[in-house]
């Protein structure tokens, strides 16, 4: 009996700005096999289906349990984590391509720096670097915990950005994930300290107003974060902030 195999088509790119090409591979099947283990097989024996020797396919990964977001790529055109993409659930040949909203470093590796820079820009942190111990903060209500737990699941995988029609070369929208984190940190007991700065930044270049309400983000999020609700909540915070700011402005 012939051994069961998995066929893959991989979009290759030798470096930033290099011309992309497609390569066809075949690797042995195994029960419960995921896309990452197919890529490991290819790395062991980098030979295409046509028998031509090639370089190992490069990809990013870290946790291998769908919590770090690093291995996100387009699997059969859909952005998802390749670690939790099981071969048996996918149509073959499995098409692997890098995310399209970030610069490609090589093959399936993209530079998601833009997203991390935006988290910095929107102060997605709890300010604890004081000159004296601030003691324990107030407790969160159970209701707020529920909301924050949902938003805390974000792993900056950028699936939401990949499917967002407002993120492209003609618009510099920061994307849904960052807005979710703004809500997350504003809801922290220390939130009010930085809230004004976060919301003011949200009114700046590529801020919340660039959202076009296609609501693809919430459908694509592998962590089921209620991104539309987060955008609406931050939209409300920005509305109130902007009106107050105008009324107080000198």
């Amino acid at each position: 009996m012939a051994q069961k195999t998995v066929q893959l088509r991989v979009k290759r790119q030798d470096g930033p700005g290099a011309r992309p090409r497609w390569e066809h591979f075949e690797v042995p099947h195994a029960p419960g096999k995921n896309v990452i283990s197919c890529l490991i097989d290819i790395a062991r024996k980098p030979v295409t289906l046509e028998g031509r020797e090639t370089t190992p396919v490069q990809w990013d990964c870290a946790c291998l349990e769908e919590v770090c977001g690093a291995c996100t790529m387009l699997v059969n055109g859909k952005p998802q984590q390749s670690c939790s993409s099981l071969v048996d659930n996918l149509e073959q040949p499995i098409e692997l391509a890098p995310l399209t909203k970030f610069p490609v470093v090589r093959d399936l590796v993209v530079d998601r720096q833009k997203m991390f820079k935006n988290l910095e820009r929107f102060r997605a942190w709890v300010p604890i670097d004081g000159t004296y111990p601030m003691g324990e903060g107030p407790l969160l209500s159970a209701e707020d915990q529920q909301v924050r737990y949902n938003r805390s699941r974000c792993m900056t995988c950028a699936c939401c950005m990949e499917v967002c029609p407002q993120i492209n070369g003609r618009s510099d929208f920061v994307g849904p994930a960052v807005i979710g984190q703004v809500e997350f940190f504003n809801l922290h007991p220390s939130g009010p300290e930085e809230m004004g700065k976060r919301l003011e930044e949200m009114m700046g270049t590529g801020g919340i107003h660039e959202c076009g309400n296609a609501q693809n983000c919430v459908a694509a999020c592998p962590k089921e974060i209620d991104l539309t609700d987060a955008i609406a909540e931050v939209g409300r915070q920005v509305t109130i902030f902007a009106v107050k700011k105008f009324l107080h402005s000198s």
Partner: peptide, 12 residues
């Protein structure tokens, strides 16, 4: 986007 046809069509 295939996962979200209804809302995506509204946007379009």
């Amino acid at each position: 986007y295939a996962n979200n046809p209804a809302k995506n069509w509204m946007y379009v």
